[in-house]
C-alpha cells in the first residue's frame, strides 16, 4: 500500500493550532477565575447587605450569581476538556487564580467590615478559596519541577 495521508505534518499541526492557541487558553482560565471571583463577590455583597432587601433585588443578586457560576462552569469545562494546559500554563493559571482569590476575598472582607455584618463568613470562605488556590499553585510548581527534573535526567544534564 503506497498511500500517504492527505495532510502533511505541518498541515496537521496547523489544524491543531486553534486548540493550542495561547489566547484560547488564557480566555478559558480567565472565564473560570473571573466566574468564580464574580460569584464570590456577588454572594458576599448579597449576604452582607444591611437591612431587608426587596424581592427584586434578591432576584437580581441571584441572577448575577448564577451568571457568574455559569461562566465559571464554562471555563472549568474548557480547562479540563477542550484546552490543553501544559505545565508552564498551569503555573501561570494558578498564579492568576491566587491573585484573583486574594483580591476578591479582600474586597468582600473590606465591604463586610464596613457594613458590620458577615465578616466572619466572608473571611472563612475567602480563606478557603485562597487555600485551594495555593494548593493548585504548589501542585503546578511540583509538576513542572518533576518534568524539568526528568528532562534533565533524559538529556544527561546535571
Amino acid at each position: 500500500m503506497n498511500e500517504e495521508p492527505e495532510l502533511s505534518a505541518a498541515e496537521m499541526i496547523e489544524r491543531l493550532e486553534p486548540a493550542l492557541s495561547p489566547g484560547r487558553r488564557a480566555r478559558a482560565v480567565v472565564a473560570l477565575v473571573a466566574g468564580l471571583g464574580g460569584a464570590l463577590f456577588t454572594t458576599g455583597l448579597w449576604w452582607t447587605e444591611p437591612g431587608p432587601l426587596p424581592g427584586r433585588t434578591h432576584l437580581v443578586f441571584g441572577l448575577l450569581t448564577v451568571i457568574c457560576l455559569a461562566w465559571a462552569g464554562y471555563g472549568g469545562w474548557l480547562v479540563t476538556r477542550r484546552v490543553p494546559l501544559f505545565a508552564s500554563d498551569r503555573v501561570a493559571a494558578a498564579w492568576i487564580a491566587l491573585a484573583a482569590c486574594l483580591s476578591t476575598s479582600a474586597a468582600v472582607a473590606v465591604i463586610a467590615g464596613q457594613r458590620g455584618s458577615g465578616l466572619g463568613v466572608s473571611l472563612v470562605v475567602g480563606g478557603l478559596l485562597v487555600v485551594v488556590a495555593l494548593t493548585l499553585l504548589v501542585r503546578a510548581h511540583a509538576r513542572r519541577a518533576a518534568l524539568l527534573r526528568r528532562k534533565r535526567e533524559l538529556t544527561g544534564e546535571v
Binding site: 501544559f86 505545565a87 526528568r150 528532562k151 533524559l154
Partner: peptide
C-alpha cells in the same frame, strides 16, 4: 519520552 516531557512542559 524526552519529546513528551518537553511537550508537557509547553
Amino acid at each position: 519520552e524526552l519529546l513528551v516531557v518537553r511537550a508537557q512542559l509547553g
